[in-house]
Design a protein around this nucleic acid. Structure first.
Lengths: 223, 223
DNA sequence: TCAAGAAGATTGTCTGACATTCTTGCAATC
DNA sequence: GATTGCAAGAATGTCAGACAATCTTCTTGA
């Protein structure tokens, strides 16, 4: 196979990236849950036309990151605790499975990668930047999910985590949550490094349950 | 609150249904995997404009039912066996969990519903209509997933099953597959009816594994 | 005070257009 | 004869503008 010579000096602004911009805006909490997104406003803000914007919105709708009510347009859904719970439960199912598999098959190289991401989270945890904490933690999971040998597991997981990013940002701000999160993640890492499937599953389960509890607290506090 | 009088004699063709039409077309195998979907053709076939069609296509892309390659347009992806395997594995994870939960909490009414859908599959199984078989089987799962108490589990499951509908239609055509499928599903039903969580999980797992094996056979045979 | 109605805002959808990027067929060359 | 190069056609990516249907909000009248 010849090498990929598709260098493409000036990559004509593929505004497929519009979706990414919007997604990022939602992640970082730029839009309040429940708030409506006005098409014309977004068009001018993003510098694209309405048809293009609407395409992007449809993608986000399918990802459940926004809702589109007929004749009312798109809005950021306010996640109920009921749904959030359901997401955490499925997340547990997926992460536990992934961690278990990962422990049995991860390569030394990827293991180093995982360790590096843990360090990145450690650094973020000692800061007060909760966005950085959420991002680095997400990296950590991503590596596990990417190495579990099942691409669908990873794909589904990413979709679910995206939907609770709002909660995660808040619960990370809880007193001491980042530090205990770090301890739990280290436990997961150690288990995987040791190739201990059972332990990896157990540590992973514990971590998700704690994260869920933290989310519940931060929600009840209305932080 | 006044009663809803929004009777709407002539329901202005909400072409949100366009997505459903296209989805159904893909399910029923109207488009060959790998074949390209030409926008202008679809527009005339569906009787809608290009912007509207493109919105619908974006939705389907996000659901992974079609792929959109820049400057090449949409096409039905040819599912590799690798990805199909991954989907079956996650499906197992979800269905087993759902069946187990369902056994513990299903209401008598819903149980009757489940029994009815099993009868529907039984009837389809004795016919040669593999599309009806796939559809009625999907109903059966839907009821289980809808009663497991976790809406996300249901949602994710639906998305995955949609992606392998192609395989399912084929493997149902295998000699005797419909009948053994029926036996497996009956086993699941009995376990749930008995409120036996363990048995429900076991039966569910067995069913998915058999379905996966059947899919593999039908793929290797290139049916 | 409260309800009906009108004005404004917003969405759903279409037409038409044009530049860019494939695809394909034909001709020229080795 | 096979390969290369090119040109015509097809298809996509994107936009502007338009208009009806619907929702929201504000005004006005009872």
């Amino acid at each position: 196979m010849p090498p990929d010579l598709n260098l493409r000096i000036s990559p004509r602004t593929v505004q497929r990236e519009t979706v990414d911009k919007l997604r990022l805006a939602i992640f970082s909490g730029l839009f309040q849950p429940g708030s409506r997104l006005i098409e014309s406003q977004l068009c001018t803000q993003l510098g694209i036309s309405r048809p293009s914007l609407r395409e992007a919105l449809r993608s986000l709708e399918a990802e459940r990151l926004i809702e589109i009510v007929p004749n009312r347009g798109p809005s950021v859904p306010a996640l109920s605790w009921e749904v959030a719970t359901a997401i955490y439960e499925v997340r547990e199912l997926l992460e536990v499975e992934a961690a278990g598999r990962c422990a049995l098959r991860i390569s030394p190289e990827q293991l180093r990668e995982l360790e590096k991401s843990l360090s990145a989270f450690e650094e973020a945890a000692s800061s007060n930047d909760s966005l950085a904490q959420v991002m680095t933690a997400a990296d950590f999971y991503s590596i596990i999910l990417a190495n579990c040998g099942n691409p669908i597991l990873e794909e589904v997981h990413r979709g679910l985590v995206a939907r609770i990013s709002f909660f995660r940002g808040r619960s990370m701000s809880l007193e001491g949550r980042a530090q205990s999160s770090l301890a739990e993640m280290r436990e997961i890492f150690e288990s995987i490094a040791a190739g201990d499937e059972k332990a990896a599953r157990k540590a992973s389960k514990h971590h998700v349950l704690r994260a869920k509890a933290a989310a519940k607290i931060s929600m009840d506090n209305g932080i």
